[in-house]
Write a protein that binds this DNA or RNA. Structure first.
Length: 508
DNA sequence: GCGATCAGCT
DNA sequence: CACAGCTGATCGC
């Protein structure tokens, strides 16, 4: 999920809002629509993207002008001239979907890898500049200052098959059903082309796609895999819409075939979604693991294969061990990503040097003394604490593991909604019983000191009643940002803990 | 009437 | 719950 880049950076990645429009350079990692949302209204020159991503995006938004784009070639660094600071950017394959890249930014702001959406593999990582790659027992020569990391499946702890293995499972599933006259493939999403290509190659048959019913999908596939598409409905392989109401349509297809005394059609859905949310609590370890070894049939008759375009937790952990970045910023809501061991162990904001690039990144001026009159009495507030407070107050839309919470940017609801004392204490309670907070952050005691720390920012704001433990306004805020309502708000817990720590050290 | 944004759903 | 995406409602011009 795209997030706004912090104030201190001169570029945006995958965001198209009034806020991102003020940046001087824009980057588009890939052509999925949730990464180009708003591009037709809030875009300005230059937009850096691969040629394919540009073509696909122009397909989706015909009103966009091609001249807004600057092509970027994979692996070829380009120098970006910026009035404030010249920097270099290089694109690397993200193994997500056709045209998808990660961007490596190198400048006075530090060395930043933005993964966009990615399925990190050893091959992907080996293509990065060697100086950033560590060895088994040695740190890299040059550590990345930041990784903006796709943590979509960071809570997915099972070992996922590689894309390559998943494709083989799809092919094997077809081999095992020689009687099926028609094979329906729910591969209408950008990123599933390799599956179709492999089936075409293996079985020597092109894939039927109904051009009239699905013009946009047809156009996209015409750009990515033009040679394996067919307009002949007698082909054994049919592209099948994944939405809406897949299970209903599948049942109808099976009933229809049986009514005509034909063998059941084969329906295959290569996607990780079913695996991520399917309830397997009653299954044994062995059963759980075997789910990923071959295609598995559900009660509607759909065969599932775990084909993922995002990294699982072990893949993320492995990548972070190799790159050993100084900080990790999740581009996905934090509560899904906080479990990453590397982040827990290495990405704390303790012991920050005054020249650390994080200050510049967050647009915090260390030279200017604190003048907020309400905060002034909190003489023991340290800079680290201010980091947390500032990044929230200023609405830099930054998700930091264990610290700040995602995007407060252009919401109609204000920061005040989030810092009402009753909310803060409640979240602390939740965290205390949840046991999902990293070591040293547990604190179940109540405190309403938050308003003091935030000072004038925490003036009253109308709010509707509480429901289900979370203020309705906050629910609205998260929904409006397409972010699920999180259980704990670690930022608030952190502010409280920092404040307590500061108080303790004051008394000593 | 149109596009942009949002709510709800899979 | 939610991938990435769609549909339909609502808002503002």
């Amino acid at each position: 999920m795209p997030i706004e880049m912090p104030k201190g950076l001169p570029f945006s990645v995958d965001t198209w809002t009034p806020c991102s429009n003020r940046k001087r350079h824009h980057f588009l990692t890939h052509a999925h629509k949730d990464h180009s949302q708003g591009i037709s209204t809030h875009s300005s020159f230059p937009i850096y993207a691969t040629r394919l991503t540009k073509s696909l995006t122009l397909n989706y938004y015909p009103q966009l002008n091609e001249s807004l784009f600057v092509d970027i070639e994979i692996g070829q660094p380009i120098a970006i001239n910026d009035p404030v600071e010249t920097f270099t950017v290089t694109a690397f394959d993200a193994n997500h979907c056709p045209g998808a890249v990660m961007f490596l930014f190198e400048g006075t702001f530090g060395n930043i890898l933005h993964t966009g959406d990615c399925r990190l593999t050893p091959e992907c990582l080996q293509r990065l500049p060697e100086k950033y790659l560590g060895k088994t027992s040695r740190e890299p020569k040059c550590r990345l200052d930041y990784i903006f990391l796709d943590c979509t499946f960071a809570t997915f702890s099972s070992k996922m098959p590689s894309k390559h293995v998943a494709i083989r499972q799809v092919v094997d599933c077809i081999w095992k059903h020689p009687d099926a006259r028609v094979v329906y493939l729910t591969c209408d999403l950008l990123g599933q082309e390799d599956i179709l290509e492999n089936i075409c190659k293996t079985f020597g048959s092109k894939i039927f796609i109904n051009k009239e019913n699905n013009p946009e999908c047809f156009q996209s596939l015409s750009l990515t895999i033009p040679n394996i598409l067919s307009q002949d409905p007698s082909s054994r392989f049919h592209l099948f819409d994944g939405f809406p109401r897949l299970s209903e349509r599948v049942e109808a297809k099976i009933i229809e075939a049986r009514a005509n005394f034909q063998p059941d059609p084969l329906i295959i859905r290569p996607s990780a979604q079913w695996y991520v949310f399917e309830d397997v609590s009653s299954e044994s370890e062995k059963q759980k693991n075997s789910r990923f070894k071959e295609a598995i049939r559900d009660s509607f008759g759909i065969w599932h294969v775990c084909y993922s375009m995002h990294s699982s937790r072990d893949e993320l952990e492995w990548a972070l061990q190799l790159l050993a970045p100084k900080r990790v910023v999740s581009t996905t809501p934090e509560f899904r990503a906080i479990e990453l061991g590397y982040v827990r162990r290495h990405c704390s904001f303790d012991n920050l040097a005054p020249d650390d690039p994080v200050w510049k990144l967050l647009d915090i001026d260390l030279e200017t003394p604190l003048v907020n009159e309400d905060i002034q009495e909190e003489v023991t507030i340290n800079k680290k604490e201010m980091l947390t407070v500032s990044s929230l107050v200023k609405g830099t839309c930054l998700t930091l593991f264990g610290r700040a919470r995602a995007g407060l940017g252009n919401s109609t609801l204000s920061y005040e909604d989030l810092v009402k004392p009753e909310i803060s204490t409640q979240n602390v309670d939740e965290v205390g019983s949840d046991g999902e907070v990293p070591e040293g952050q547990h604190d179940g005691s109540k405190s309403n000191g938050l308003t003091k720390v935030i000072g004038k920012q925490a003036t009253a704001c109308s709010s509707t009643g509480m429901s289900n433990g979370v203020n309705e306004n906050i629910r609205k805020l998260y929904r409006s940002m397409h972010i699920p309502v999180p259980k704990p708000l670690p930022s608030l817990v952190e502010i409280l803990n920092n404040r307590k720590r500061a108080k303790r050290s004051f008394m000593l």
